[in-house]
Design a protein around this nucleic acid. Structure first.
Length: 928
RNA sequence: GCCCGAGUGGUGGAAUUGGUAGACACGUUGGACUUAAAAUCCAAUGACCAUUGCGGUCGUGCGGGUUCAAGUCCCGCCUCGGGUACCA
């Protein structure tokens, strides 16, 4: 019989589940440890081998922490709202809730088979009313809050209203889109509607007419992070820019805190860098330019106020509100055509044609506030309406984009910064602008001769004194568009009275999705919820018909796991105080600009409310790499039914076709199975090599259409979950992308069988003894404990597996069947391979579960060596080895090395110049 | 374009952070066991040269450098992967 993984794994999975071995509660006698995986979207195709990679790693860590005496919170749930289920609903009419439920069931079955230590009693699903109640609740709190820049935190909007009533808004320092200043008298005189409109400019969840990414194919707007290269992330459909009234979250208010918070996080530098770039802080100044012949002024943002003397023209974004007003009659038609053209360009066009310079002159002139010089105002789409003020002063000599524009339209270029120690040159001879901030100002009034850094500071100081501008900081981070014109998402707890949005009373939550006849927009383009009958409040006010985006439910889910069944609050104070934050978070780095920013924002807001205990949700983050597929190919000779083996394909004109990896074993095609696979292959003929058909292979994304999806169930069926767990870890470093290849799985399977042989002989006889372990055996054990512990703490799980293999190889060589060694070993192995470890631990006579054992401690005394084998090298090249006592002095080592018989050969006829001795490392003899 | 990350045998990958390059595993080859196959076990396996034996030379993407010693540090490139896309 030997190692019967099937029997073992079902037995212990049942035991763990029946005895709620992984259930956790608050326990003040133990320190907490919170290990979290990014929860999955339950897709229709189930788990493939890439999904569990991170789950296995975090499971090993969670189990390890538990063995070390921590009270480990290790929950799992589902990000259940999402587009695929809805797209499927549109095609088939099946309600997305049904599809989702079915997929979740499948996921759960697959997850259960892998033997994770999840506390399923804490499962959350974002589409569960008991869960999304709190998503909606948080939205209401956002709606009822504003961001006070003085305290740098969210505060109740009621306090803001009180201040308006007392003093108006003049003294308020808020993150806001409100520009007009009003007095308390003016505030009180306003109608309800006017007041609500103003408050909207302060709310952290607000509705606004804004430029959005509209995806016609999906029929919804998308957030910036959901658009990749001008296409939707889901489905790769074109995206347009469009003005639309949408709900937004004022995440930009938190830009600085999101930036500062990164400092103390144990995240990879790369993902921190991604977030820093996404937040995009830049320091500079806003400067006011008058417009010749108009009362209006244009405000521009620049990071280089020191180059004001070199501004030779100005550029406005095509959306700029002053364009119409200032354009001269002669330029009117050209400008109108240009603006219309620019606005109609798709995002994708804009992006692919970045190098193409376009623009048009308005006929108007701005006046440089420092020099008094007149500069032409242009319109061009290289200036973005969404950033800064939507207008710039162009300094072609020191900005590459302005330079390209100036060259194209023959505008003047004036040098105002030169490299230290270099003479100014004629800009008309330049091939590129001098953008560096490392320089000296020239021809620049009061800053002439100053270094750029000082010049910037000086100009800011002076323009502030003169009242023509001020130092400002701009962030690239945009407010998050929070509404989707979709069905399958959280409904907004919002109703409209006279067209003004109001939040539902919290007692009305959760607001559940209504039934609709179709999951499509209405004829007049309203979102699907507009199809619902009676989609209104008790009083008859219409409810919001948009739904929330995918990131709504995933932004605060880690908090709900702390107290998932609480029906009175998001989570109890006690649970929050005990579990605090996530100690270890595992997931893919593709969430760098989406979930991981939104979630931090959400948490910071809840922290401001006094709910979240920590300012940052995820202390340590590990991004597991993606597992790529290994596709197999057959080569069809053009226009025939003949298929030629890989090695011979160059002799023919061939077509490369994907073939299901299940039909291929080690690149050898199962010809009969291939013929049966699809009707068009039934009559296939083969040109073979050595009687076999060899397939070609390539590494690509794992996907159904490439027939390279490896699903874990088949592997578990064949090798068991422990083998799968070990193999996924053995594949390579956790954080690295790597191709999936089943070839090596036999190796870890053999390892487990070999381990079994230490406990049972060929006749299944238990052969473990109570004999005293030898020094050699103890050394193997303690060396392994040390290595395993070190590797788990470093998240180096691949080297951990190989340490186990080395250990078992050595114990097999030593013929060791001693309980003294094997018992701690079974505990040591249990985080990696919990089923076999639990089984073996029980065969040694233990009761309960191995999860309650203590992680073994290694002791230095067993590791001590008496000798060290020195590599002796000459001029850096190792020539022979020399075994010497460890405690030998440097001089003695040197002496021994020089006296060694092999040394003669290498020093013959040469002089010894130097001898390097590093105790317990190396001996290097330099000759010449 | 800019910002990260990575390049090591036929393959996945090790290398205590400057100290024996290729651990561990796959694959391959040869052998043992077997009527046979599977499973298992043993041996070899970076390349090249020499093989009668001792052995030798080269070798971590490329070119330089620092050092007694470089996969590891420095300078300059090349290739691949990821992020970003006119952010003033």
């Amino acid at each position: 019989m030997g190692y019967d993984f099937g029997k073992i794994e079902t037995r212990w999975q049942k035991y763990w589940s029946d005895n709620k071995v992984y259930h956790v509660d608050i326990d003040y006698n133990k320190p907490k440890f919170y290990v979290l995986d990014m929860f999955p979207y339950p897709s229709g195709s189930g788990l493939h081998v890439g999904h569990p990679l991170g789950y296995i790693a975090s499971d090993i860590y969670a189990r390890y922490k538990r063995l070390q005496g921590f009270n480990v919170l290790h929950p799992m749930g589902y990000d259940a709202y999402g587009l695929p289920a809805e797209q499927y609903a549109i095609q088939t009419g099946t309600h997305p809730a049904i599809t989702t439920e079915k997929n979740i069931k499948r996921y759960r079955e697959q997850l259960d088979k892998i033997g994770f230590s999840f506390d399923w009693d804490r499962e959350v699903r974002t589409n569960d009313p008991n869960y999304f109640k709190w998503t909606q609740w948080t939205f209401i709190q956002l709606f009822k809050s504003w961001f006070n820049k003085n305290s740098s935190k969210a505060e109740p909007i009621t306090e803001l209203v009180a201040e308006f009533e007392k003093n108006g808004n003049a003294a308020i320092n808020a993150a806001t889109s409100q520009e007009e200043v009003f007095t308390s008298g003016e505030w009180k005189a306003m109608s309800e509607e006017e007041q609500q409109e103003i408050l909207m400019n302060y709310r952290l969840a607000y509705i606004s007419e804004t430029m959005v990414n509209w995806c016609p194919a999906l029929g919804t707007v998308l957030a910036n992070d959901e658009v990749k290269e001008g296409l939707s992330e889901r489905g790769s459909h074109p995206v347009e820019r469009k003005m639309m009234k949408q709900w937004l979250l004022r995440i930009s208010a938190y830009a600085q805190r999101l930036l500062d918070g990164l400092e103390k996080l144990e995240w990879s530098d790369s993902i921190k860098e991604i977030q820093r770039n996404w937040i995009g802080r830049s320091e500079g100044a806003s400067v006011i330019f008058n417009i010749k012949g108009f009362e209006d002024t244009v405000e521009v943002f620049t990071t280089r106020p020191d180059t004001l003397w070199g501004a030779t023209f100005m550029v406005m974004a095509p959306e700029h509100e002053l364009i119409e007003k200032i354009t001269t009659p002669e330029q009117k038609e050209k400008i109108e055509n240009y603006v219309a053209w620019a606005k109609n360009r798709s995002e994708r066009e804009r992006m692919t044609e970045v190098k193409k310079v376009t623009g048009e002159f308005t006929g108007a002139y701005g006046i440089n506030p420092l020099t008094g010089k007149e500069v032409p105002i242009w319109v061009a789409d290289y200036v973005l309406s969404g950033y800064g003020t939507g207008a710039i002063m162009a300094v072609p000599a020191h900005d590459s984009r302005d330079f390209a524009f100036a060259r194209h339209f023959n505008l003047p270029v004036i040098q105002v910064v030169s490299k230290e120690g270099e003479e100014p040159t004629d800009p008309s001879t330049w091939e590129e602008s001098y953008d560096s901030k490392d320089g000296i100002s020239i021809n620049s009034g009061f800053i002439t001769g100053m270094k750029t850094k000082d010049a910037i500071a000086e100009v800011i100081k002076r323009i502030e004194e003169m009242g023509i501008g001020k130092g400002t900081i701009n962030y690239r981070l945009r407010d998050a568009i929070f509404s989707r014109q979709r069905y399958w998402g959280e409904p907004f707890p919002i109703y409209y009275k006279n067209g003004i949005p109001y939040p539902l009373d919290e007692s009305e939550l959760p607001l559940k999705l209504p039934d609709v006849d179709k999951f499509l927009p209405t004829e007049d383009g309203e979102p699907p919820l507009a199809r619902a009958k009676n989609w209104k409040t008790k009083e008859g006010y219409p409810l919001e018909t948009n739904t929330m985006p995918g990131f709504a439910g995933s932004s605060g889910y880690y908090l709900r796991y702390m107290d998932p069944h609480n029906d009175k609050e998001y989570f109890s104070r006690e649970a929050g105080e005990y579990w605090q934050d996530v100690d270890l978070y595992l997931g893919g780095d593709e969430h760098g600009t989406g979930h991981l920013i939104y979630s931090r924002f959400w948490n910071k807001f809840l922290f401001d409310l006094g709910l979240a205990v920590k300012d940052e949700p995820y202390k340590k983050l590990i991004n597991q790499g993606k597992i790529q597929g290994r596709s197999s190919f057959v080569y069809r000779v053009q226009g025939t039914d003949n298929y030629v083996s890989f090695g011979l394909k160059n002799q023919y004109e061939t077509q490369k076709l994907h073939v299901d990896i299940d039909l291929v074993d080690g690149d050898v095609l199962d010809i009969e199975a291939f013929k049966k696979w699809r009707p068009e292959y039934a009559n296939a003929q083969f040109i073979l090599e050595d009687g076999k058909y060899y397939c070609g292979h390539e590494v690509e994304k794992m996907s159904k259409s490439k027939y390279n999806v490896q699903n874990p169930d088949d592997l578990i069926e064949r090798y068991g979950a422990d083998t799968l767990r070990l193999y996924e870890m053995f594949l390579g470093p956790l954080e690295q992308d790597k191709p999936w290849d089943t070839k090596g799985i036999e190796g870890v399977y053999r390892f487990l069988k070999k381990l079994w042989r230490l406990f049972f002989n060929e006749d299944d006889k238990f052969i473990v003894t109570n004999e005293k372990a030898s020094a050699a055996e103890l050394k193997v054990l303690h060396k392994t404990i040390k290595k395993i512990q070190h590797d788990i703490e470093q998240f180096s799980f691949n080297t951990g597996v190989s340490a186990f293999m080395i250990c078992i190889n050595e114990l097999s060589d030593l013929n060791c069947h001693k309980k003294e060694i094997l018992e701690p070993l079974s505990v040591l192995l249990s985080p990696y391979a919990p089923h076999i470890a639990e089984e073996l631990w029980h065969t040694l006579g233990n009761e309960g579960t191995v999860n309650d054992a203590d992680f073994p401690k290694w002791e230095e005394k067993y590791l001590r060596e008496n000798t060290f084998t020195y590599p002796v090298s000459f001029n850096g090249k190792t020539r022979f080895k020399l075994e010497l006592p460890v405690d030998l002095s440097k001089d003695d080592i040197k002496k021994a090395a020089l006296e060694a018989p092999e040394t003669q050969k290498w020093i013959e006829g040469k002089t010894i110049r130097k001898v390097i001795v590093v105790p317990k490392r190396i001996v290097n003899i330099v000759v010449g």
